[in-house]
Amino acid sequence: MKKLINSVDTVLAESLAGFTAAHADIVAADPEGRFVRRAAVTPGKVALISGGGSGHEPLHAGFVGRGMLDAACPGQVFTSPTPDQMIAAAEAVESGAGVLFIVKNYEGDVMNFDMAREMLDRPVATVLTNDDVAVETSSYSTGRRGVAGTMIVEKIVGAAAEEGRDLAALQALGERVNGRTRSMGVALTSCTVPAAGKPTFALGEGEMEMGVGIHGEPGRRRVPLASADAIAAEMVEAVLGDLADQASGDALLLINGFGGTPLMELYLMYDAVRRRLNGRGVTVARSVVGSYVTSLDMAGCSVTLSMLDPETVALWDAPVHTAALRWGA
């Protein structure tokens, strides 16, 4: 394992210390490391709190700030945070209008956020994100994983929260955006969890994992490494097929790197995906290319398509000032 670290036990604390020091104009840290919060609370606004296992940076702490999250709770690497973290975060940033949890659909995250909600003496609602089409839902009751589309939900709901919408409205909006968002990923290499010290899975020199999850969970199938165009084709068809009737009109296209993939390849994939989308009734109205929802040092990327309407375009375009996404502010 080759990583820029001091010891596996201190990775998370030191990385968070660096993050909060580098972005002290935007965020403040809980002294006990349970959450990262906005430097300043906006009174009367619904508090948006997300979180999950670490190793997906900049998600979620990189999305704390004006126009997006109020706080993020980082768990250990690839391990959901514990309820005390969400409780402490809610107590720090909730100001009367209630708390909206944005939670990626993994049983660990769901259960820990549920326990926090049960223990909290404040109004709490939850939006679950489950945009990953790689694994069919039908036969498994766990449901789909929340992956890169989570960032889009956080951005759009964050902008709406800033407008002063109430908890129920934000929850409904979050569910609507999630319902129009689909993703699929591919890995060219495994990631290595620091504490494990070795790659989570083994891919041969000529292999890729199609439909990989953001924790290096296996996907649809392990297949020979294919061209960018062939990969784009499989991903686009999976995403469009799953969106079905919704796949028409304006969309946000996100090409998301997993942490070990250079920008040059991500832009090349963007080009391949756009060519594949040509003539399919989807207009790429907004684009994001970069590593936003990562899987430590995994090489690979995901393709996310999120269908937009005039309301959600405007919310996407609204000012945002976080460590990882910033415009208009």
Binding site: T82, D84, N112, M115
Partner: peptide, 14 residues
């Protein structure tokens, strides 16, 4: 266990 384990097993064993 609830406050320290995290993941799925934390809430379950907790």
């Amino acid at each position: 266990l609830v406050m320290r384990v995290g993941g799925a097993s934390g809430p379950l064993y907790g």
